[in-house]
Amino acid sequence: MSSVLSTFLQQVINGLQLGSIYSLIALGYTMVYGIIRLINFAHGDIYMVGAYIGFFAAGFFGGSFFPTLLVAMAGASALGLTIERFAYRPLRYQPRIAALTTALGVSIFLENFVRQFVGPNYLPYPRIIKVTQIKVGDIQFSNIQLIVLAVAICLMLGLTFLVNKTKLGKAMRAVSFDKDAARLMGINVDHVISMTFLVGSSLAAAAGVLVGITYPRIDPYMGILPGLKAFVAAVLGGIGSIPGAAIGGMVMGMAETMVLGYMKSSYRDAIAFTILIIVLLVKPTGILGKPMSEKV
């Protein structure tokens, strides 16, 4: 195998790993946007809090992976539910700008809360899983990369099942289609919105733990950029579309890895927003999105 090709394949694997993280975060954005048309700026910070909960849970469980993951997901879900209930729900029928401002406020609050009460510095993440390198031909990857990809795929399959095959999923689709009609059909809209936040937050927390075990350090501001990039991924995939968010996240991760691998590393953060501008110019509805028209 030529070294050019193997370098490229190496980048593809790295891209899939990063893309899994973006996909998991993007899913929460797209679900919340689909259901209440709100860009939840605090979503990136829920991912950060998830990573922190995982950090402490790992200490408690002596470093076993699945309990850590589950506790982080549960904790972040509780946080997501609380935020929805007390900060967003009262503003559901106010101008959108009020809800957006609140979301921004929640985001700044979470960052500074963690900074003040946990500490402003990087924390080294516990090595929950021992790293081993796997070599196939010229391509080398770690067991961590495999685990990240596997966990992300399992969660996404689980989400697909939830949305398409369960009663709750049906209710979610109904509420996102038409809140008032859903209410008339006897769906408890508040409950469905809460569940959406719960599911979205738990996926973000899973991403947080996965990032923790891969790049073993976390900090209070770690959620800002991945949050923004994941949102762009959701827009790229078609905001409101669940498979769209998964695809968008993967594309975003891949694009960023390629920039990192083949261009200047200081441009890695600019690529996401370049993609955003291109999507808005060329196809604002994204890859899988349907045009959303306002009722007149």
Binding site: L100, L225, L228, F231, V232, F273, I277, P284, E294
Partner: peptide
């Protein structure tokens, strides 16, 4: 229509910084 401006302005500020 919608809130794309929020993300676009945020992203643009980041591009400028880079």
């Amino acid at each position: 229509k919608g809130d794309y401006l929020a993300i676009a302005t945020l992203g643009f500020a980041e591009i400028i910084r880079v």
